[in-house]
């Protein structure tokens, strides 16, 4: 009897250290010169201090405030009090740490989760060039920071992970609808929480915010649910309105060699 209940997803990718790819020459330069300042890109913002990412924000990733308050780890009022006294979310988190309102481990963990999550979207291919502003406000504080190169590597690894799970990125940004798979593969408890929120209106990012869960974690489950035939994007290839999440990978291969070449060229130019 062979009853494989849950389709096993492909193995988690391990970075190819020999590849030496970089997401953008600008990031490489900022890392080399240990720059301090603010990098504003189309899909998010990185705060750098001495070449390390101390904070990241993206409209596609729930912030530290959402992650901490969604499940009652921290009362919303406590966050608002700290935010009102601080110059930004990172300072607010440091205040919480100072005052012992949260265990250091919990806060560090949530902060790192939020940095990698927002960083993933910030470093997604964009249609406009990023802008870096030298600014001595960001500094390495008590909360952990991440070297720019480490964030870059992890972002590339995450793209590969999503691609291996289900190569079509259409489900990342479009409103999702449920579908009835021919053979109903069971879903895991964390996937069930995502599936329960698929209503034809919410996107993966909306579901993440509703769940108080990292957006990338939600994308992993959405791609797995798409691969298993449980969900599908409402419109397979919607136009690019501002509200959709960035497609981290080029669209599926096109048969016309000229179009494929043009798309590769466009992607390469965007990556500059």
């Amino acid at each position: 009897m062979t009853l494989v209940q849950i389709p096993t997803p492909p193995p988690l990718p391990v970075r190819d250290k020999t590849a030496g790819r970089a997401l953008s020459p600008m990031l490489t330069r900022l890392a080399e010169e240990r720059a301090t300042g603010i990098l504003v890109r189309e899909h998010g913002t990185l705060y750098l201090a001495e070449g390390r990412v101390v904070h990241a924000e993206s409209p596609f990733a729930p912030g530290l405030d959402v992650l901490l308050t969604a499940h009652g780890t921290l009362a919303s009022a406590a966050w608002q009090r700290a935010a009102a006294r601080a110059s930004g979310p990172l300072r607010a988190a440091e205040l919480l740490l100072d005052e012992g309102l949260l265990p250091a481990g919990a806060l560090e963990l949530c902060h790192l989760d939020a940095v990698y999550d927002a960083g993933y979207f910030t470093l997604a291919p964009s249609s406009t060039p990023g802008r870096f502003r030298y600014d001595n406000t960001p500094r390495v504080g008590p909360l952990p920071s991440v070297p720019v190169v480490a964030l870059e590597r992890e972002t590339l690894r995450r793209r590969l992970l999503l691609h291996r799970l289900w190569p079509d990125p259409a489900a990342d940004g479009a409103p999702l609808i449920r579908t009835d798979p021919a053979r109903a593969a069971p879903v895991t408890p964390r996937q069930r929480a995502v599936l329960d929120r698929v209503d034809g209106v919410r996107t993966a990012v909306g579901i993440a915010r509703n769940l108080g869960r990292q957006a990338f974690h939600t994308l992993v489950d959405v791609r797995r649910l798409a691969a298993a035939g449980h969900v599908t994007p409402l419109a397979p290839h919607p136009p690019e309105p501002r509200v959709t999440a960035p497609s981290p990978l080029p669209p599926p291969p096109v048969t016309d060699p000229d179009i494929a070449l043009l798309k590769r060229l466009r992607d390469a130019l965007e990556a500059l």
Partner: peptide, 10 residues
């Protein structure tokens, strides 16, 4: 497994 009060998988 670490049991966190916020959503995580660590």
């Amino acid at each position: 497994f670490v049991d966190t009060s916020f959503d995580s998988s660590v």
